[in-house]
Amino acid sequence: MRIRLGVWLIAALLGGCDQSAPVDKGFAGLGNQAAAFTPVVPGRVFGFPADHGPHDGFRIEWWYVTANLKDEQGREFGVQWTLFRSALTATSEQAGWGNQTLWLGHAAVTSASVHHAAERYARGGVGLAGVSLTPFNAWIDDWHLSSQATGADPLTELQLSARDKGFGYQLRLTSTKPWVLQGDKGFSQKSEQGQASYYYSQPFFQASGSLEIDGQRYQVSGHAWLDREWSSQPLTANQTGWDWFSLHLDSGEQVMLYRMRQKDGAPYLTGTWIDAQGQTQLLKAGDIRLTVKDSARVAGRSMPVTWSIQIPGKHLDIVISALNPNAWMNLRIPYWEGPVRLSGSHGGQGYLEMTGY
């Protein structure tokens, strides 16, 4: 589902001096009413490459990459790169410090024994962060997700880079597979009350390049997953956080699942089954059995780091476990995100994000 907390966080952190700002409701304020912004409704027709760029009128948006990688010795790593856009008003972008858009970047690397994470903040309109389409470039400071493609779709070949204290990476991402519309033709519902986002993915990227952890450099390759999502109010005030899974199966199929936890009532559970050619099937709560198998003490709280996932209609019965249970994003608003391993009916790798614990 790729709801990402950061966009709303910068509205609170950088825009906190605005006394008219609404009081947070739900996790990270994601349940705040957004009547002034453009609503998310079913039936939208997506258009590429235009939808790779920003969407005026919507309050929240992100460009999000995760990658499962190995070096030549078979050592496993995970990489995360995210750019969040948060609009303080529903007006169009403008140049200069009067711009009402805030930007946040998150970057992380994970190995079996080490996890590093960093964040960057910027105001829009002054060249410190943004997203352009011609050529495609999403950036904040010196962190970039930029097109290297020459064809009609600028996101078929990308260069991904970030660097901070203790880590850095440069990766090349390539794919010739189609974009995947999540949910119901890109309408991704988050609650029984109808909160939703527009959501599409490229789960078929092949990744290669180098990463550095604590001065040690590794040549790596593997799978990467890009999520694009935008909304104005994706959650209800009753929803306290989520558990999100993106899974690369060795069979060539992909699975996206999310569970929206609530203060009262059962979690909202849904997902998408993606076959090896990119065709999708919406998964509803009755299609999925998601169970916590084991937890670990992480950053002073109990985190579910081993899960059982069963999708009987697809003969999937797997256990996923964290490569590094301590993949805690110790940022301004913390959360857990890191690579996972798959065992059981299907092998593979993936990523897990957990918020609100």
Rank of each mutant, 00 (worst) to 15 (best):
M1E: 11
R2C: 10
R4M: 09
A11I: 06
A12Q: 15
A12E: 15
G15H: 10
G16C: 10
C17T: 10
D18N: 15
Q19K: 09
Q19D: 13
G26S: 07
G26D: 06
G26L: 01
F27T: 03
G31I: 03
A35K: 13
F37R: 07
T38K: 08
T38M: 05
P39N: 09
V41D: 00
D51E: 12
H52F: 12
G57D: 02
F58K: 06
W62V: 01
E72L: 07
F77I: 09
G78D: 10
Q80P: 06
A87C: 12
S92E: 14
N99K: 05
L102G: 07
W103M: 02
W103K: 02
S111V: 05
V114Y: 03
H116A: 02
A122I: 06
G124I: 02
G130C: 04
G130H: 06
A138P: 08
W139Q: 04
D141N: 14
W143G: 04
T150D: 10
T150A: 12
A152Y: 05
A152G: 10
L155G: 02
L160T: 02
Y169K: 05
L173N: 04
T176L: 08
P178V: 00
Q182H: 12
K185Q: 15
Q189G: 06
K190G: 05
E192Y: 08
P203Q: 07
G209H: 01
D214H: 00
Q216A: 13
E229K: 04
L235N: 06
T236N: 03
W242C: 08
W242S: 05
S246Y: 00
S246G: 15
S246M: 09
H248Y: 05
S251N: 07
E253G: 04
Q254I: 03
Q254R: 15
L257S: 01
R261T: 06
D264W: 11
T270R: 15
A276E: 13
Q277I: 02
G278A: 04
Q279I: 04
T280M: 08
R289W: 03
D294F: 05
A299S: 15
T306I: 13
W307L: 12
I309N: 03
I311V: 14
P312L: 00
G313E: 10
I318Y: 05
L323S: 06
N326Q: 15
A327F: 09
W328H: 12
M329S: 14
G338S: 11
L342G: 08
G347D: 13
G348E: 03
L352H: 13
E353L: 03
M354F: 10
M354V: 14
Y357F: 15
